[in-house]
Write a protein that binds this DNA or RNA. Structure first.
Length: 429
DNA sequence: GGCTCCGCTACTCG
DNA sequence: TCACGAGTAGCGGAGCC
């Protein structure tokens, strides 16, 4: 088998190199992806120390609260059923309790969080159910799930995958350490179980809004570029311009709406999607988008051109030449074609950001080795790098990390970082 | 009847 | 259509022995 594997790789080499050169991806392959093979190997090998006892305590604590919620949900439903079954839950909520806004899916009623959130004022069972599901997820996937991966060295060694995603990002499995909770405080606490080894500390650095900065650069939009050169709160600036409000009078609602529009732009804007996200009508969403494009006209032109280019060539590219084919644009299905358009707008942005952090990872990894340091890169979470740094090396390593991330490439806007140092992933995240 | 496989729906993250 | 990109867990139906 080993002979067969190596024979296939050997025989395929010439053909693959030829194809990479033909598609202008050879430099990307040689300068970014090949070195990254070794960087990811080093990260997997090093692993991250994880406190098994703390996970057990956390799991037991969750079990108590889940039990209470379970009891209360059964009482309010008037019977016992499997809360983990969307099918059974749907029948209880929309047939037995007769709650409004029932929406059908393929298999029954939708009990998605976005649906249930509209029902919180109709019945106390709703909030209990939403909390139950969060805690059940927390216990099964994180508290209990992660514990199964802790090895004899008290570490978790995730697998990083280099050839999975359509955009050039890496992914993580067994376990996935790229989706550890952070948004809700109770769930975020699970990050305390991830710690540096004895004599080491964590240094964490994350790019500030790297995708919007990539968009500013690629589109060349003067207004957005200038905004990034003068002010750090880009969502507030956008709100000020889009809603014609002086900067210091922007309300928190206006800012949060502008933020949603910024996200929408990166995802490949659609009035349907924005409307759904903000819970407003499609028409209102259209007005937001129109105002946005009036504020940043070169972004509209850039996104329109990406779609045209994709329709013409059949693919889009990142700054570093990574391609994503988009066959959906040729589909006879309207929804599929619209999906293709959003992909054409999103992939060059998400993919370029992925290329940039990969360059930084390679340089950081190489520099740590060149200088014979014991500190090591241990995790990447799309726009964030986590280093386990020897205490004596802290200042030097921090400097390496910041320098390589900021200077991974030169854009028309600065690449800013958030950096922090701490004794566990909760403190630095 | 018990087993595996897989689609669906839910949750988690950037 | 949980907008773009991912992964995991539980349920429950289909198919197999």
């Amino acid at each position: 088998f080993a002979c067969y594997e190596s024979f296939v790789a050997f025989e395929a080499y010439d053909s693959i190199v030829e194809q990479l050169k033909k598609t202008d991806m050879y430099d990307l392959f040689v300068n970014i992806e090949m070195p990254l093979v070794y960087t990811l190997f080093d990260m997997e090998k090093r692993g991250i120390k994880t406190n098994k006892e703390a996970l057990k305590e956390y799991s037991d604590k969750l079990a108590v609260r889940i039990g209470e919620l379970e009891k209360s949900i059964y009482e309010q439903a008037g019977e016992e059923f499997n809360i983990n079954s969307p099918k059974q839950l749907g029948v209880i909520l929309f047939e037995k309790l007769n709650l409004p806004f029932a929406k059908k899916t393929k298999t029954g009623y939708s009990t998605a969080a976005s649906v249930l959130e509209k029902l919180v004022d109709y019945h106390p069972i709703i909030n209990k159910t939403l909390e139950y599901r969060q805690l059940a997820k927390l216990k099964s996937t994180y508290a209990d799930g992660l514990a199964n991966y802790i090895g004899k060295d008290n570490k978790i060694h995730t697998k990083f995958h280099q050839t999975i995603t359509a955009t050039g990002r890496i992914s993580s499995t067994d376990p996935n350490l790229q989706n550890i909770p952070i948004r809700m405080e109770l769930a975020r606490a699970i990050r305390k179980v991830f710690t540096p080894e004895e004599g080491f500390v964590f240094i964490d650095a994350d790019y500030s809004q790297i995708e919007l900065r990539v968009l500013a650069h690629m589109s060349g939009d003067e207004s957005l570029i200038e905004a990034y050169q003068h002010e750090d709160d880009i969502h507030k600036i956008t709100a000020s311009k889009v809603f014609h409000t002086p900067l210091d009078e922007v309300s928190s609602l206006q800012r949060s709406n502008a933020k949603a529009v910024n996200f929408g732009i990166i995802y490949g804007i659609s009035s349907f999607g924005l409307g759904q996200d903000l819970n407003i009508s499609r028409k209102e969403a259209e007005e937001y988008i129109e105002q946005y494009f009036k504020t940043y006209p070169q972004i509209k032109e850039f996104l329109d051109n990406l779609v045209l280019e994709a329709e013409d060539k059949g693919y889009v590219s990142t700054i570093f030449g990574r391609r994503r084919p988009i066959p959906e644009l040729k589909s006879s299905n309207f929804m599929q074609r619209n999906f293709g358009k959003r992909v054409a707008m999103n992939s060059p942005i998400q993919g370029t950001a992925a290329d940039i952090i990969k360059i930084a990872m390679n340089r950081v990894n190489q520099e740590l080795k060149n200088r014979k340091l014991e500190s090591r890169l241990i995790l990447q979470v799309h726009d964030e790098l986590l280093i386990e740094a020897k205490v004596e090396e802290l200042e030097e390593v921090k400097d390496i990390l910041v320098t390589e991330m900021k200077n991974a490439t030169k854009l028309r806007v600065p690449l800013e970082l958030g950096v922090s140092i701490g004794e566990n992933w909760y403190e630095v995240g």
